[in-house]
Simulated scan of single mutants.
Amino acid sequence: MDIKSLLLFLIPWSLFFILFEFILRKKLNINRPKGFYRGVNNLHKRVEIGLFIGFLLSMIIMEFFFSGMDKYTLFIFFTFLFGVRAFMEWKFDRPTREYIITFWAFCFFCVFTISFIFLF
């Protein structure tokens, strides 16, 4: 996998994601949240911190015991993270409808990960 083919893969996917999110927010009248990250409640924050710690530990274990991290681990982690985040927002914060955007990101990342695995 060279950098040129990777960029030719990432740039259209990124532009499609940004454009569709913009259209979805305008069409459904969903405001952007203030700040970079906003947890729904304490349970949500704890679950995501646990996911990050589990991911870091799995990276360390894979590096030392299995001679290197699999190149798909990061994509799988983000797909799982978006899924958990969409579920928590849907379950505990429905009035803001931010879960629609997060679910879109989850679906996008699933398709992106599968296409990345098959192409590279």
Rank of each mutant, 00 (worst) to 15 (best):
E21Y: 00
L81R: 00
F64A: 06
L119G: 05
S14E: 14
K91S: 12
W13P: 00
T102M: 07
I18R: 12
V47W: 03
F106G: 02
F65G: 03
I60E: 15
I23S: 11
I11W: 01
E98H: 13
L43E: 15
C107I: 10
T113H: 04
M59S: 05
F17W: 15
I23H: 05
N42C: 08
E48T: 02
F103R: 06
F82R: 06
L24E: 00
I101S: 05
G35Q: 00
I11K: 10
A105I: 06
F64Y: 11
F118D: 05
L28T: 00
P12T: 01
E98W: 12
L28S: 02
F78C: 03
D2K: 06
R85D: 13
L7I: 13
L43A: 13
E89K: 06
P33D: 13
F75P: 02
D70C: 14
G39T: 11
N42M: 12
L7D: 12
V47M: 13
G50W: 08
T102P: 07
E48P: 04
R32G: 00
D2L: 01
Y37M: 10
R32C: 02
I100F: 00
S115T: 14
S67K: 14
I23A: 13
I23N: 06
A105R: 08
C110V: 15
F82T: 09
I23G: 06
I23R: 05
S5T: 15
M62Y: 08
L8D: 08
L119S: 12
S14C: 11
F9Y: 06
I76C: 02
P95K: 13
L6Y: 08
K27H: 08
M1Y: 04
D93L: 03
A105C: 12
I61P: 00
F109H: 07
R25V: 02
M62H: 09
I101M: 05
E21G: 01
I60Q: 13
M62R: 03
D93P: 01
L19A: 14
M59Y: 12
Y99I: 07
I49C: 06
F87E: 01
E48G: 01
V47F: 02
T96P: 07
F16C: 07
W90T: 08
K71S: 14
G50E: 01
R38A: 10
H44M: 02
L74A: 13
F16L: 10
D70V: 15
F103K: 05
R32E: 09
K71E: 13
M59N: 09
M88R: 09
L19T: 14
M69N: 15
R85Y: 08
S67Q: 12
L119V: 13
F16Y: 10
V40Q: 01
L10K: 01
F109M: 12
M1C: 08
G54H: 03
D93A: 07
S5P: 14
M62S: 11
D70Y: 14
S58Y: 07
T113N: 10
F66N: 02
T113P: 05
C110N: 11
N31Y: 14
A86C: 01
R97W: 06
F55C: 04
Y37C: 15
L10T: 03
I117R: 03
F116T: 00
I11D: 12
L57V: 06
E89Y: 07
E63F: 11
L51P: 00
F55W: 04
R32K: 15
F120R: 09
